[in-house]
Amino acid sequence: MLTGVNVLLLGGDARQLEIINKLCESNATVSICGFDQKKELHEKAIPIELTKESFAKLDALLLPAVGCDDDGYVHTVFSSESFQLTDELLAALPKTCVIYAGMAKPYLKELCARHALPLVELFERDDIAIYNSIPTMEGALMMAIQHTDFTIHRSHSMVLGFGRTGISMARGLQALGSTVWMGVRRSEQFARAYEMGFQPFYTKDLEHVAANIDLLFNTIPTMIITAQIINKLQKHAVIIDLATKPGGTDFAYAESKGIKALLAPGLPGIVAPKTAGLILADCLSQLLLEQKNRREK
Rank of each mutant, 00 (worst) to 15 (best):
4 G>V: 00
5 V>D: 10
7 V>M: 13
10 L>W: 13
13 D>P: 10
14 A>C: 09
16 Q>M: 15
17 L>Q: 14
19 I>S: 02
20 I>R: 10
22 K>Y: 13
23 L>F: 07
25 E>M: 09
29 T>C: 13
31 S>I: 03
32 I>D: 00
35 F>H: 04
36 D>S: 13
38 K>P: 04
43 E>T: 15
44 K>L: 08
48 I>S: 12
57 K>I: 14
58 L>S: 08
67 G>Y: 06
73 Y>I: 14
76 T>V: 01
82 S>R: 03
82 S>P: 01
85 L>N: 01
89 L>M: 00
98 V>E: 12
112 C>F: 08
117 L>F: 09
119 L>T: 10
126 D>H: 13
128 I>P: 04
130 I>S: 13
133 S>V: 12
141 L>V: 15
142 M>P: 00
142 M>T: 07
143 M>H: 11
143 M>S: 07
157 S>V: 12
165 T>G: 15
174 Q>F: 14
182 M>G: 06
190 F>N: 02
190 F>Y: 15
192 R>V: 08
194 Y>I: 00
196 M>F: 07
198 F>G: 02
198 F>M: 06
204 K>R: 10
204 K>I: 01
207 E>C: 04
209 V>K: 00
214 D>W: 10
215 L>Y: 03
218 N>K: 07
219 T>H: 11
220 I>H: 00
227 A>C: 08
231 N>A: 04
231 N>R: 01
239 I>K: 03
241 D>G: 09
241 D>K: 01
242 L>N: 03
246 P>I: 00
250 D>P: 00
250 D>H: 02
250 D>F: 02
256 S>T: 11
260 K>C: 06
262 L>D: 05
267 L>R: 09
269 G>K: 05
270 I>W: 07
271 V>P: 04
272 A>W: 07
274 K>D: 10
275 T>H: 05
275 T>K: 04
278 L>V: 01
278 L>T: 03
280 L>I: 08
283 C>F: 04
286 Q>V: 11
286 Q>A: 08
293 N>P: 00
296 E>S: 09
297 K>G: 11
